[in-house]
Amino acid sequence: MPVTWSDDVDDIIGGDLTCGLACLTPAGGAVVTSVAPIGMRDRERGTVGFTTSLGFGRKLERIKDDPRVALAFHAREHGVGDRPDPRFVLVQGEARFDPHPDPATLDEIGSRLEPYMGAPKTGWFWDRWLRAYYGDRVLVTVTVTRVVAWPSAGADGEPEVFGAPLPGAAAEPQRPPKKGTGPRVDAARTGERAARLPHLLLAYRDADRYPVIAPVAVTAADADGVGLRVPAWVPHGGRRAGLLAHSYRAQLVGLESRQNTGWLEVTGTEARYAPHTEAGFRAPANKTIVLLANGFLARRGLAKARKQGRAAALG
């Protein structure tokens, strides 16, 4: 039977402007980034969706390699409707996508964008410039295995669970990487950047091999790592984990995103994170400039994916 969820949780899933997406890595870790769900869900079929572009296709490659994903609905600002509900909602399931969507699917995506992103720019220039960004968009549909709703934004307290029960045992610690567990990029800078952004998400692989996303906060940062405060249910010990710090404004204008993969050591509600890789960007709070940049990055990313054969491999 399809997994369904409550009206209150549905309001959150249907209204949030952005959410965190966690995908698994071949090494047993997780990568977390932000995506636009634009209210796409179907309680009768037990599915939740989000959109991305073939020009930014790395997440699609990860999904094709392992379809188990998690979505974290963690922030209400700039969404649709008036919902002061502070809950942190985690959706876990298996994702699928069509890398060559038909026009009807693209039209459906386009019809849903305006309440969240504002009216699209059109005309001779914009139609051509944004073709890779809008015309090559892909709908990713997640068949839900489990929905977990904690009563607070910090994911504290007793959660409400819809669908499969939570794993009965905590995930075992993972084997340290051969290159060591210490930082490989500037940990102090990573922590300082993350601490000034309002939303910070941590992702790892759980005992049932689905990714989990947890809200966390920076407590310290130095050359040896980033101190984090984590929910009490995050498993103790060491493991590979992804970190995302981000901020956004209305219509996803004025974005900033800082993304890491690395090694996590947890004791109680305190953790130490050693970043191994880093990526990020900061977009100006100007919609025209953002759309110009989106068009350029999507066109370049799509051309690169086609040249390397990655776009064809998704099909």
Rank of each mutant, 00 (worst) to 15 (best):
residue 197 L to M: 10
residue 197 L to I: 14
residue 198 P to H: 11
residue 199 H to G: 08
residue 202 L to V: 02
residue 203 A to F: 02
residue 203 A to H: 09
residue 203 A to G: 03
residue 204 Y to G: 04
residue 208 D to V: 08
residue 208 D to N: 06
residue 209 R to G: 06
residue 209 R to M: 00
residue 210 Y to G: 08
residue 210 Y to M: 09
residue 211 P to G: 10
residue 211 P to M: 12
residue 214 A to P: 06
residue 215 P to K: 03
residue 215 P to A: 01
residue 215 P to W: 05
residue 216 V to K: 14
residue 218 V to L: 01
residue 218 V to R: 04
residue 220 A to T: 15
residue 220 A to S: 15
residue 221 A to T: 02
residue 222 D to T: 13
residue 223 A to S: 08
residue 223 A to Q: 14
residue 223 A to G: 04
residue 224 D to W: 02
residue 224 D to K: 05
residue 224 D to C: 05
residue 225 G to D: 15
residue 225 G to Y: 14
residue 226 V to H: 02
residue 228 L to R: 12
residue 229 R to F: 03
residue 229 R to G: 11
residue 230 V to N: 07
residue 231 P to F: 13
residue 232 A to Y: 06
residue 233 W to R: 10
residue 233 W to E: 11
residue 233 W to N: 06
residue 234 V to Q: 04
residue 235 P to C: 13
residue 236 H to G: 13
residue 237 G to K: 08
residue 237 G to E: 08
residue 238 G to R: 01
residue 239 R to G: 10
residue 239 R to F: 09
residue 240 R to Q: 10
residue 242 G to C: 06
residue 243 L to D: 02
residue 243 L to G: 03
residue 244 L to N: 11
residue 245 A to V: 05
residue 245 A to W: 09
residue 246 H to V: 13
residue 248 Y to N: 00
residue 249 R to W: 13
residue 250 A to M: 03
residue 250 A to Q: 06
residue 250 A to W: 08
residue 251 Q to R: 03
residue 254 G to A: 15
residue 254 G to F: 14
residue 255 L to S: 07
residue 256 E to D: 06
residue 256 E to N: 06
residue 257 S to T: 13
residue 257 S to Q: 15
residue 258 R to F: 01
residue 258 R to S: 09
residue 259 Q to I: 07
residue 260 N to S: 08
residue 262 G to R: 05
residue 263 W to P: 04
residue 264 L to N: 07
residue 264 L to V: 08
residue 265 E to P: 02
residue 266 V to C: 08
residue 266 V to F: 04
residue 267 T to M: 03
residue 267 T to L: 09
residue 267 T to S: 05
residue 269 T to S: 14
residue 270 E to P: 01
residue 270 E to R: 15
residue 271 A to G: 09
residue 272 R to A: 12
residue 272 R to L: 07
residue 272 R to S: 08
residue 273 Y to I: 00
residue 273 Y to E: 02
residue 274 A to D: 00
residue 275 P to G: 12
residue 277 T to F: 00
residue 277 T to M: 00
residue 277 T to E: 04
residue 278 E to H: 08
residue 278 E to Y: 14
residue 279 A to C: 10
residue 279 A to V: 07
residue 280 G to W: 03
residue 280 G to V: 02
residue 280 G to S: 01
residue 281 F to T: 07
residue 281 F to M: 00
residue 282 R to Q: 08
residue 282 R to K: 10
residue 284 P to M: 10
residue 285 A to I: 04
residue 286 N to D: 15
residue 286 N to P: 13
residue 287 K to D: 04
residue 288 T to V: 11
residue 289 I to D: 14
residue 290 V to A: 15
residue 291 L to Q: 06
residue 291 L to V: 02
residue 292 L to V: 15
